[in-house]
């Protein structure tokens, strides 16, 4: 790769370059190959896997995780981390039950929930960019504060019901197509296009890849980073409303575990915690892998505990595969 004529070693270099290309190819497409293989194998091992009802159930479970993962990806792309998403989800669900419980309240619920998500993201983003707090701590702190505020608001035990609208959104299907998919698809498309096809997306990649360079390129690093946290908060709020509709009984634990699961989905999808790498379709595939792993554990009759065990193994494995030498 040097421009100098290299008398010896050129051959070696050639071979290594080749293996580097293969690695890059595997990193780019491996997740999709794995996903397809997984589906095929699952279909063979457990034929019930491919039943329309099972698939539709899987998608219903996938949507909230995918939504949170999309936001998490934006943050990780910009070299951050958002641990507050689960807390935002639970808060959104609690908001969902705090109004009259009928469909008149749908709009205010959405507005309030999304505003809470956005405000959380704003605080996270400000702490990270203006105070240089590490993202881990900033979002950890806002997670705790939000949890406290929610407990204070509900006095520990939320009462009331989600409006039928959200219950339908969380559980119903239209010709076997889950309704929540109609929320995920446009949002995923928008996020995907912004990230992969716009100038803004390119700037996020460069901010994550080299924040100092991005500053010297005159990019509005702080504004974009804050924007990523705000988007993550908003998406988590929407996911929380859908999950609240799915869960029927809303308590304070709605969404618990999603902060880590969304990070896992992003990592499986090729995102590096050091920023600047990963794709949105990859992360969606990563979320799908997580949901499928949980599902197949049940279908083949393994104890449910193996869901988490496998999840743990998958994240380490995935990170090991993507690691750049």
């Amino acid at each position: 790769m040097s421009e100098q004529a290299l008398p010896a070693g050129v051959k070696t270099a050639g071979i290594r370059r080749h293996s580097g290309e293969l690695r890059a190819l595997a990193a780019r497409w491996g997740i999709y190959v794995f996903l397809v293989l997984f589906i095929v194998v699952s279909g063979i091992v457990a034929p019930s896997f491919l039943h329309a009802r099972n698939l539709s159930n899987l998608v219903i479970q996938l949507v909230p995780l995918a939504l949170v993962a999309l936001g998490q990806c934006l943050v990780i792309m910009a070299r951050g981390l958002d641990l507050s998403v689960a807390s935002v989800m639970a808060t959104a669900a609690v908001v969902g039950t705090s109004f009259s419980g009928d469909n008149h309240a749908v709009l205010p619920i959405i507005v309030v929930a999304v505003l809470i998500g956005a405000a959380t993201g704003l605080v996270n983003g400000l702490l990270v960019t203006k105070r240089q707090v590490s993202p881990f701590l900033a979002t950890l702190a806002s997670m705790i504060v939000l949890q406290g505020l929610r407990f204070a608001w509900t006095h520990g035990a939320p009462t009331g019901a989600m409006p039928p609208f959200f219950r339908a959104l969380g559980t119903q299907s239209w010709h076997q197509v889950p309704l929540s998919l109609f929320v995920l698809v446009p949002i995923a498309a928008v996020v995907g296009i912004v990230v992969h096809r716009t100038i803004l997306g390119r700037k996020i990649y460069i901010i994550g890849g080299n924040p100092v360079a991005a500053g010297l390129l005159g990019y509005p690093v702080a504004v974009i980073t804050i924007g990523a946290y705000v988007a993550s908060g908003c998406l988590a709020a929407i996911a929380g409303l859908i999950l609240g509709g799915y869960a029927e009984i809303v308590d304070n634990s709605v969404g618990s575990g999603f902060e880590l699961d969304s990070i896992v989905a992003a990592v499986i999808g090729g995102f590096a915690l050091s920023g600047g790498r990963g794709t949105i379709p990859g992360a969606l595939a990563g979320a799908a892998v997580l949901v499928l792993v949980s599902n197949i554990v049940l279908l083949v009759g393994l104890p449910v505990q193996f869901q988490i065990i496998l999840k743990g193994l998958v994240i380490v494995l995935a990170a090991a595969c993507y690691r750049t030498r």
């Binding site: 716009t198 100038i199 390119r202 080299n210 360079a213 600047g276």
Partner: peptide, 28 residues
Amino acid sequence: GQGLAMLLDVAANITAASLGTVQSGPFL
């Protein structure tokens, strides 16, 4: 440390300072 986004490709790095010239609307 201050110049290149090492994980990105040549094209992204070359155009990083002049994104205005490779945009159409908000799109790349």
